[in-house]
Design a protein around this nucleic acid. Structure first.
Length: 848
RNA sequence: GGGCGGUUAGCUCAGCUGGUAGAGCACCGGCUUUACACGCCGGCUGUCACAGGUUCGAGCCCUGUACCGCCCACCA
């Protein structure tokens, strides 16, 4: 335990991250009661992606809060999770091992993937596929963990979880079964937004609008009576065979006479009714629209509310399905012509079929004019490449619409940092237009823990699912067998079939508070940690992760999942664009940490306030690095002569401590409100003042062993101890290093400083005069420095001081005069008059 | 179309309940001052986006406009 000769930052990360691990510095104390615990629902990063600067930025914010709470004496429950669920992992595993998942296959315990992936992917069962996902993501997790440790994240690494772990699956399945039991989950055969490339249903939360070129095609629908025709505009003429009605606004006089009449679809000769509906916009196109099953979500609304039949043509792969014209549901006035037209588009994708239909329309004369190009917004799956279609399929839903009011109330109950982010949540909840579709037609994910009976005719009966016992969970219905059945009855008449789908990744992620707190597994842990204290996350996933977590906690526990949520901003590149890989401006986090040092990068991150998008700024990191180095050097100086107890008699010393006491108070207030940026700013400001003014003024007095020297020694040592603890949540490495020079144990478990500790032994009666003295000392020193600079008199030139002070400053000046004189290389001081502060100096020749 | 945030020095940003515009970086000048040259001291830099309004007084409050970013939206 000693101060190094030449302190440096290099190597501190490696030194302390392993020491913290050995010492269990951040181990959660699970004997703590709920009120002593601070629990954090950390976002699990997607392991198959890569970490970027944005992660470093926002995770630092959370770590600052965690460290603050820990020093406040809380048992901080801070587990790290890995999100290895979902499509990114699935794709990566397919490519990495050269496999593909076939859920109809049975588990092969002896399967090992080939050394090198073959061109022809090997089909494997879902459990085998999941095993490979787990294996691959495990490697990613280790790399992530190394980075987090290097950054100084104070998580308890013994409590790491993964979203595809058996326990996460158990929690997902159990919550689903509860919701099924309570009628909050249900299945429905219904039109659903569908990605034709991923071949899965997608939820409202996963949509994004993209601007796409399109074109209005003006089509002619003949009146069924024979006389005249009506024209409609459509961007999707290929859906004419799926047309089931036309619709116009009820008040639109142009079309009122047509309501209840029929018109004939072009090319296919199908009589369809003309119906009124208020959603039809008289301003759009010709004011009358074609309803198809299904071209867009408005079609679904019209179809439902007008009780129209289904004539679906788009299949799950996006191609037009075969249709026999003239058969039931496909009646046509001219089935032969309809068939001939349809045969030329069957099997084509929507865009190819569209081009072909336009040719057919031109030939038949049902296209008025040329298509008019437009740009319009089209719904996409956020990870998808082609527009979504709407396909009718059986899906599982969790009820959101019935809970809208309750969810809005939960949103108001939650404390949002920054507060305005609550608007995003309310916006989303108010805009919900359907229950949450949680089933996905994918392989890697949490399966629905259900089987269905197969009837004697071989048809699956979805109405009464066969449920597993809760104690059995997690289960995979594609390999496990429901009670009362044998494995050889799978898929045969009179037997059973497993639900083929997996849950939406958010269906699992929405349960992170349950997963980490040991819901329905470790009741003791659960009651010590739930509801949690903090959910930190980014604002782009308020509608997904935050919303769905609030929903699940509401359904399961009738509670908020956490009391607070801190929404972090994004890291922007200097062009004010969100930093992203695709823009080619990604800096690897590890390179950044190695170049500037973790404390320096954390400093930059901490300067970005809660919810504030922040520019990537290497300059700030350099400033942070300088701060850390300054901390090393200043500490070395203070600790070179240190003493913990003794009377603080000098007014300047006391003034410094009073100022520090107020700082401690402010910083605590800022951090309680998650305003780490303001906290850091104030600490930093004090620290530079302490170094440049206070220490410079007292360093000579401090060298002596008389009572005045002891006063400065005690005060500066106390201040250093306090500042190290204030800086500790922000700069964990350098503060720990300095702390270790003179003290046992970790600064990160040290007590958070209190104003009372700082001003211990000081009499409140002197606060005003001490503070005034400290202020006058700084002001006069600044004037002397200005004078020296203006007159090019270096510090080494001794000078005589002539000072004018306001009357009010005369007494404070007397208290600090000797420090100001000694600290500014002044030979003698002459104070005169009264008025505005004025300083002049006379250089004094040095006696030879 | 609806909503949320932002616009302050060349750059990155503070500015609490209205009371004479701030910091850091950059730039310029100076300093061997035994903690630190990875340092210290000093200096320069502003129609607080724009237009109105309230007020003795507006960067801050109100109304409107513009631009930037984001979220949401039924996209014929």
């Amino acid at each position: 335990m000693s101060t190094p000769e030449k302190p440096a930052l290099e190597g501190l990360e490696d030194k302390w991250k392993s020491r913290w691990e050995t010492d269990g510095t951040y181990r959660f104390d699970r004997s703590a009661s709920r009120s002593q615990v601070y629990s954090i629902d950390t976002p699990p990063p997607t392991v198959s992606g890569s970490l970027h600067v944005g992660h470093v930025f926002s995770y630092t914010h959370t770590d600052i809060v965690a460290r603050y709470q820990r020093m406040r004496g809380k048992a901080v429950f801070y587990p790290m999770g890995w999100d290895d669920n979902g499509l990114p992992t699935e794709r990566r595993v397919q490519n990495y091992y050269g496999v593909r998942c076939d859920p109809s296959l049975l588990y092969d315990p002896s399967f090992t993937p080939p050394e090198k992936p073959d061109k022809q992917p090997i089909a494997i069962s879902r459990p085998n596929f999941v095993e490979l996902c787990v294996r691959l993501t495990h490697e990613d997790e280790r790399a992530f963990e190394q980075l987090w440790r290097y950054l100084g994240m104070s998580v308890d690494w013994s409590m790491t979880y993964a979203t595809i772990s058996r326990d996460a699956q158990r929690v997902s399945q159990l919550a689903f079964l509860h919701e099924l039991d309570r009628g909050q989950a249900y299945q429905l055969e219904a039109p659903t937004l569908w990605d034709i490339d991923f071949r899965t249903a997608v939820a409202q939360a996963e949509l994004e609008d993209r601007e796409m070129p399109g074109a209005y095609h003006r089509l002619r629908f003949a009146h069924a009576g024979g006389e005249g025709a009506v024209e409609i505009d459509t961007t999707r003429p290929e859906l004419i065979p799926a047309c089931v009605a036309l619709v116009a606004h009820p008040d639109d006089p142009r079309y009122q006479p047509l309501f209840g009449q029929h018109v004939i679809t072009p090319l296919f000769g199908v009589p369809v009714p003309v119906r009124p509906h208020p959603l039809a916009d008289p301003e759009k196109g010709t004011g009358i629209a074609m309803i198809c099953t299904f071209g867009d979500v408005t079609d679904v609304i019209w179809w439902r509310e007008l009780s129209l039949p289904v004539r679906a043509v788009i299949q799950t792969n996006g191609a037009l399905r075969p249709v026999t014209w003239g058969s039931e549901g496909w009646e046509s006035n001219d089935a032969a012509t309809a068939q001939r037209h349809y045969d030329s588009i069957v099997g084509l994708s929507a865009s190819k079929a569209r081009a072909r239909v336009v040719e057919l329309l031109r030939e038949s004369g049902d296209l008025t004019g040329d298509p008019r190009p437009i740009t319009h917004h089209v719904k996409f799956f956020e990870k998808g490449d082609r527009p979504l279609e709407i396909v009718t399929s059986r899906q599982w839903f969790i009820r959101t619409m019935d809970n809208r009011e309750a969810l809005l109330a939960r949103g108001r109950e939650l404390k949002w940092v920054p507060h305005h982010m609550v608007a995003r949540y309310e916006n989303w909840v108010n805009g919900l237009n359907g229950d949450w579709c949680v089933s996905r037609q994918r392989f890697f994910g949490v399966p629905f823990p259900l089987w269905y009976r197969v009837g004697a005719d071989g048809a699956i009966d979805y109405r009464q699912p066969l449920l597993p016992d809760a104690a059995q969970l997690p289960i995979d219905p594609s390999t496990e067998v429901p009670a009362g059945y044998r494995a050889d009855q799978r898929g045969v008449p009179g037997g059973f079939a497993g639900d083929p789908d997996v849950m939406d990744t958010w269906a699992t992620s929405s349960l992170t508070p349950f997963i980490v707190c040991g819901w329905e597994r470790d009741p003791d842990l659960f009651q010590r940690t739930f509801p949690m204290d903090l959910r930190p996350q980014a604002h782009d996933i308020i509608r997904t992760w935050l919303f769905s977590t609030v929903l699940r906690a509401h359904l399961e526990e009738d509670a908020l999942p956490w009391a607070n949520t801190a929404i972090s901003g994004w890291v922007l590149d200097p062009d004010r664009k969100k930093m992203s890989k695709s823009k080619g401006n990604v800096v690897t986090p590890m390179g950044l940490l190695e170049e500037h040092g973790s404390d320096a990068v954390r400093y930059w991150a901490a300067k970005g306030g809660p919810g504030v998008d922040t520019a990537f700024d290497a300059g700030q990191m350099k400033v942070g690095r300088r701060l850390a180095i300054k901390l090393l050097n200043a500490s070395k100086f203070v600790l070179a002569k240190s003493c913990d107890t003794g009377p603080v008699t000098a007014s300047l010393d006391r003034g410094m401590l009073w100022k520090l006491g107020r700082l401690v108070e402010h910083v605590g207030r800022h951090l309680d409100g998650y305003d780490y940026a303001s906290a850091l700013r104030e600490i930093e400001e004090f620290f530079w003042w302490f170094c440049d003014d206070y220490i410079e003024l007292v360093k000579r007095r401090r060298a002596s062993d008389d009572p005045a020297g002891v006063s400065a020694t005690v005060a500066s040592a106390r201040a250093l101890s306090v500042m190290l603890r204030l800086f500790a949540p922000f700069l964990p490495f350098v503060t720990e290093e300095v702390w270790s020079w003179s003290r046992d144990g970790s600064v990160h478990r040290g007590p958070w400083p209190t104003p009372a500790e700082v001003t211990m032994g000081l009499s409140a009666e002197t606060e005003q005069s001490d503070s005034a003295a400290s202020r006058v000392a700084s002001e006069v020193t600044a004037r002397i420095r200005q004078e020296r600079s203006a007159r090019k008199l270096g510090f080494s030139v001794p000078a005589r001081l002539m000072l004018t002070t306001p009357d009010d400053d005369r007494a404070p000046w007397d208290l600090v005069a000797s420090d100001v004189i000694a600290g500014n290389n002044i030979t003698s001081a002459q104070v005169s008059g009264s008025g505005d502060l004025a300083v002049s100096i006379d250089p004094q020749p040095v006696d030879v």
